[in-house]
Simulated assay, not measured.
Amino acid sequence: MDYTHLGRTGLLVSRLCLGTLAFGPEADEPEAHAIMDRALELGINFFDTSNVYGWQSQKDWSENVIGRWFAKGGGRRDRTVIATKVYQPLSDWPNDGRLSALNIRRACDASLKRLQTDYIDLYQMHHIDRETPWDEIWEAMEVLRAQGKILYVGSSNFAGWHVAQAQEAARARHFLGLVSEQSKYNLVTRDIERELLPAAQEYGVGVMPWSPLQRGLLGGILAAEKQGRLPGNRVAPESLERYRPQLERYESLCAELGIPPAHVALAWVLSRPGVTSPIIGPVSVQQLDDIEGTLDVRLDERTLTQLDQIFPGYKTAPEDYAW
């Protein structure tokens, strides 16, 4: 396993981050625990969850599943860099959601209880809160850090100017501020190349791409379609038809390379400047073992150029649209 620093911090995390969105709803607890055990065996030390994952499924919450795994001992908690999130409301009651100081405090305590731990390594804002001032947000995070409940703060689904705004507000308070940002980023969805990626690099914020396979679109979907394996797939039919011509070229290129499409897509994300760890979401140990092989894939310049031709990206703003 390869490791890198999370943004500008001294914290070392694996180049792959284990996403746990499916733990509870799709992967039952025994399977989820087996996946996490295998992840540690493979050297993956970075796990991502949220205080709402699994909540609406009427099954188990991801944080609860992870907490019972931590409770098994064996160094599981000590070997894991755990990241969770706050923002989404869990009810329609006032203050049960968003980023007020009150909700940040309550949500953090609830996550700690579910995770059965006394600290969270990376506490992430799941969405920008345009109605709460940054001084309030940062003061709440500073209190949690002073109490030893969190170590680092990250964001998710922020725009580039949100990162700049957050960092300048933190700098004025002499606080570390954001160290990471989770954004949707893959060969098909490359919007963050205009402003978010440059902002993150400028401020030393590590980027954690989510949906690196575009919900399976980049994982060999046309080959699966030919084999009749599409029922239950997460890809919307209109999305498949929209990208079908590009996917035909893409899967043909992967066949020429002799590399599975999912590995090519992940290897591409790993090659992008500013990217720390793409978030993978296996629902079985077998899927995890298959994904782990991505780290052995190195795409040469010719292949990267071909991928750009199939799935064009963006220049940094304003050059992308002004000149």
Rank of each mutant, 00 (worst) to 15 (best):
Q147H: 12
V153I: 12
G148Q: 01
G73C: 05
K72R: 14
L99S: 03
T80G: 13
Q88M: 14
I104Y: 11
K85Y: 13
A146G: 06
A107L: 00
A107E: 05
H127Q: 13
K149M: 06
E136D: 15
I150Y: 10
E139Q: 15
N103P: 00
P133M: 13
L99H: 03
P94T: 03
Y87E: 05
K149Y: 04
K149L: 05
A110I: 03
N157G: 01
V143M: 12
L151T: 03
R114N: 10
L122S: 05
E131L: 14
L102V: 10
G97L: 00
N103D: 09
A140M: 05
C108R: 07
S100H: 00
Q116H: 13
A140S: 09
N103H: 15
K149D: 05
L102G: 01
Q165S: 12
Y123V: 00
S155I: 00
A101K: 04
V86E: 06
Q147C: 11
T80D: 07
L112S: 07
V143N: 04
A101T: 03
F70D: 02
V143P: 02
R79Q: 14
W138Q: 03
I150Q: 06
G160C: 04
V153S: 13
H162N: 11
A71N: 08
F70A: 04
A110V: 03
Q165R: 12
D118S: 12
I150P: 00
D118P: 01
P133E: 11
I150G: 12
S111P: 01
R68A: 01
L90N: 07
